[in-house]
Computed example of a mutant assay.
Amino acid sequence: MKIVDGKRMGSVTVFEDTIMLAEVVGDVILNSGHLELKGKVLGNLFVRKGTCRMLGIIRGNLENEKGDVEVFGTVHGKVITKSGYTYVNPGSKVGSIEHAVPVKREEKEKEAVST
């Protein structure tokens, strides 16, 4: 398990199991593994794959592209789920919650035929 603490300038990409206690001035991108975020992100959090337990603060948006996310902290922007599983604890503070609308099977078939 990797521990990230202190203050980080710029984006941080995570590829392994990580506990983040840091303040990140930029975006955090989870590509694989497990991220436990207990610090601050002064940008966005992108969960591309893996699991994330968010206990800290995100100034921007939290975007779940294809992972498992649990929100127990504060997200000033939106919590966006494109794919995967997202749980927002009732005690959490979030700006808004959005879910991507799944494409219907018939529409996928039409797209496949037209290309």
Rank of each mutant, 00 (worst) to 15 (best):
I80T: 04
D27R: 00
H34M: 13
R53Y: 11
I80D: 05
K78G: 01
K110N: 07
V4T: 03
G26L: 11
V113G: 05
S92N: 02
V71Y: 00
I57T: 07
S32Q: 15
E106Q: 12
N64C: 12
L30K: 00
S32N: 12
A100I: 09
E36S: 14
G39S: 13
V47R: 02
V25G: 08
S96F: 10
K40V: 08
I97C: 03
G95S: 09
E109Q: 11
A112T: 13
M9Q: 06
G60M: 10
G50E: 07
T13P: 01
K78C: 10
I80A: 04
I3S: 01
E23Q: 12
V24R: 03
G67T: 12
H76R: 05
E16S: 09
D5P: 04
V69D: 02
S83G: 15
T51M: 06
C52F: 12
I97A: 00
M9I: 11
E109S: 10
H76L: 02
E109P: 09
G43R: 06
V71A: 08
G91H: 08
K108L: 05
G84E: 09
L42A: 13
G77H: 07
N31P: 06
L37Q: 15
K7H: 08
R53I: 14
M20W: 01
V14I: 13
V71I: 11
V103D: 07
V4H: 01
P102W: 11
V94E: 00
C52N: 14
G60F: 11
